[in-house]
């Protein structure tokens, strides 16, 4: 309830600010913005810090909406599973322009167990680094367009397999439809080691 009240309070403040004509944002951009919102919520101690450090997945649902002030994107940010297999999660909603409307911690879930110990960037920052690869390169690489436009899920896991160039993490990005899964391998500092397209 408290989270809902804060969400509405923030919505009220947002509406008070001078209107600037903004464009609707893509799924990929909205996902990046949802990570920024999550980071703010962690910094202000509104949600558990493990969402920043032990994030496992981000799931996106595009909502039918009619106005620029209505929820257009609903994100579910999910932590690494606990001992009983359940996961803590929080929902974050954004408008079509990427403005935050509110957040709602979901009931249940247990404390993450055996979460990877990322040595440099945390899990949310690694996820964001992978998203930046898509956002920064889509204009020169059309193969990235499905993930920019139709991203539906992002997963973070430790990278498997040998690598001489220090890859530690793999961010898997899934788009709606038949497009292959995009796997982005990252080093500990968030730089991109390699990219693969794997058929579904």
């Amino acid at each position: 309830m408290k989270a809902l009240i804060i969400g509405f309070l923030l919505l009220g403040l947002g509406l008070d600010q001078p209107a600037i004509a903004a464009e609707p944002v893509s799924n990929g951009k909205a996902t990046e913005l949802s990570l920024h919102r999550m980071e703010r919520l962690v910094t202000l101690k509104k949600i558990d810090e493990a969402f920043q450090t032990k994030l496992k997945a981000v799931k996106l649902e595009v909502l039918p909406h009619q106005g620029v002030d209505q929820p257009a994107f609903k994100f579910t940010m999910v932590q690494v599973a606990g001992e009983d297999g359940s996961q803590r999660a929080v929902e974050i909603t954004l408008t079509e322009e990427g403005r935050s409307l509110g957040f709602q911690p979901l009931p249940g879930g247990s404390e993450p167990k055996d979460a990877p110990d990322w040595s440099d960037k945390d899990s949310a920052e690694l996820s964001e680094s992978a998203l930046h690869y898509v956002l920064d390169n889509v204009s020169v690489n059309s193969k990235l367009a499905p993930y920019f436009n139709n991203l539906s899920q992002l997963n973070l896991s430790p990278a498997s397999g040998p690598s001489a160039s220090g890859r530690v993490a793999c961010v898997t990005i899934v788009a709606r439809g038949d497009d292959p899964v995009l796997k982005i391998f990252l080093r500990a500092d968030g730089t991109i080691e390699s990219v693969e397209f794997v058929p579904k």
């Binding site: 804060i6 309070l9 923030l10 403040l13 947002g14 008070d16 600010q17 001078p18 600037i20 004509a21 903004a22 913005l33 920024h36 919102r37 980071e39 703010r40 202000l44 935050s100």
Partner: peptide
């Protein structure tokens, strides 16, 4: 007026997730 509202109840009142960028605030 909006600036004064933004700093009226920090940190809640300044609803920024990222540093404001000129292209977005002053397109």
């Amino acid at each position: 007026k909006t600036f004064w509202e933004m700093i009226s109840n920090l940190p809640e009142s300044a609803d920024f997730d990222m540093m404001p960028e000129t292209a977005k605030v002053a397109p």
